[in-house]
Computed example of a mutant assay.
Amino acid sequence: MMLEALIAEFEHEVAGTRKLLQSIPSKDIAYKPSPVSWTMGELAQHIATIYYWYVGVFEKEVYDMAADSLERGEPGDIEATLALFEQNVEKARAAMKAATDESLQRAWTMKVGERTVLGPMPKAIVVRSFLFSHIYHHRGEMVVYLRATGNKPPGLYGPTYEDVKASQG
Rank of each mutant, 00 (worst) to 15 (best):
K60N: 09
H134S: 01
V36P: 00
A8S: 15
P153T: 06
A15M: 12
G158P: 09
L70M: 10
T17I: 03
Y52I: 00
R139N: 12
Y161I: 11
G140I: 07
P159Y: 04
D101E: 10
A92N: 03
D68S: 13
D77C: 07
D163L: 12
G41T: 06
I135M: 04
V89W: 08
Y31W: 10
E13Y: 10
D101P: 09
G155V: 11
A80D: 05
T109P: 00
D68E: 14
W108F: 10
I47L: 11
G150W: 01
P159A: 08
F130C: 01
G140S: 10
M1A: 15
K111C: 07
S133T: 07
A15P: 00
A166R: 14
P159W: 09
K152Y: 02
T100I: 05
M96R: 02
L146H: 06
L3Q: 02
G113F: 02
A66H: 10
E11H: 13
L43P: 03
P122I: 03
A15Y: 05
Y51C: 02
F130I: 09
R139M: 13
G140D: 08
Y51H: 12
E13Q: 15
A8P: 13
A107N: 13
M142S: 03
I47A: 01
L82R: 14
R139G: 11
L146F: 03
M110E: 11
M96F: 15
A107R: 12
T100A: 08
L131I: 07
A148H: 14
E71L: 07
G41V: 05
